[in-house]
């Protein structure tokens, strides 16, 4: 009680050892996270020349923000980012949860199947992107060849150079890459469902489905929330797969925020504009981060209370 009324300084002095332990980590974070954030926000208020001579920058106030928010490319990239994030998250979660439910039952070869399903997750995203680019290739791609052989199409589909198909094609790769993450999370969650509750439900007359709805699902609420939020953040931040497979093309059809920012900063050397763009993304991420931390700590309070 008294600690709360004390000043911050006195508290730091009293617990100086604790603060000392945290100091190195805090210092590193200030250096590699804090400073870049500060510099990005600072740069976002300037017009920068299209070269690396940043001392020639001119203060522009909120101009960069105004230009971004009114640009068509921003609206297109935002729409693409939304489609990308929502569909990737949804399908990765559904597929991962399904796989987790399957793996949660005892059967022969369970360990092997779990290992196989984890492969996409542990493969390097860069390597996987190149492999998928070949699978999708309009002339030599396996997927196109198979769909022709099976008679689905007359000519191989041009997955990556077609503005309507490119987004779904990329989302498929992304879902393939990250569903094992959802699977691991949900499997861990499933394994903590208390056995005595399931037994109680069986005695009370619940079948498999009722037990799932009344016991398992409520128990998985926390881990579901955390998994979905983490997937959302990962997908909003996606870069590797779209950048390597299409670079945002064709004609910006697969351009999402991060690839667009990269293009602005390092393609067109517009650091001020790219910084403002990053700040907008940062604000969105902080919003998600708030819900993530709340989801994590809510459980703590419940346990504590």
């Amino acid at each position: 009680m008294t600690a709360r009324s004390d000043g911050l300084l006195r508290r730091i002095v009293r617990h100086r050892a604790d603060y000392l332990y945290v100091a190195p980590a805090l210092g590193v974070m200030l250096l590699v996270i804090g400073y870049p954030i500060y510099d990005t926000v600072y740069l976002s208020f300037f017009n920068t020349p299209p070269n690396l001579a940043l001392e020639d920058k001119i203060f522009a106030g909120l101009d960069n923000y105004g230009r971004i928010l009114s640009a068509d490319s921003f609206h297109e990239a935002t729409w693409n980012t939304l489609v990308w994030t929502v569909f990737s998250t949804f399908f990765a979660f559904v597929l991962g949860f399904g796989a987790a439910l399957a793996l949660n039952r005892e059967f022969r070869g369970r360990g092997l199947l779990r290992g196989i399903l984890l492969i996409p997750y542990v493969i390097s995203a860069v390597a996987a992107s190149y492999v998928w680019r070949w699978l999708y290739h309009s002339d030599f791609g396996v997927i196109g060849a198979i769909s022709v052989a099976l008679g689905f199409t007359d000519t191989p589909i041009n997955f990556l150079d077609n503005t309507t198909v490119v987004m779904p094609a990329l989302i498929v790769v992304n879902v393939w890459k990250e569903f094992p993450f959802a699977m691991i999370m949900m499997l861990a969650g499933l394994q903590t469902v208390p056995d005595h509750l399931l037994r109680a439900a069986r005695v009370d007359g619940a079948g498999t489905w009722e037990s799932f709805v009344h016991i398992t699902l409520p128990h998985l609420k926390g881990v579901t929330l955390v998994t979905v939020l983490l997937l959302l953040v990962t997908n909003l931040n996606s870069f590797t797969i779209p950048y390597i497979m299409t670079g945002g093309g064709p004609a910006g059809a697969s351009e999402i925020w991060i690839t667009h920012i990269y293009q602005l900063a390092f393609g067109r050397i517009r650091f001020g504009l790219a910084s403002a763009y990053s700040v907008i993304l940062f604000i969105v991420m902080m919003g998600l981060g708030y819900f993530y931390v709340r989801a994590l700590t809510q459980g703590d309070e419940r346990r504590g209370g």
Binding site: H196, R199, A200, V203, H219
Partner: peptide, 14 residues
Amino acid sequence: IAMVFQNYALYPNK
């Protein structure tokens, strides 16, 4: 049958 468990096994979300 009805069963009473050692740790009560009450449904925590209900």
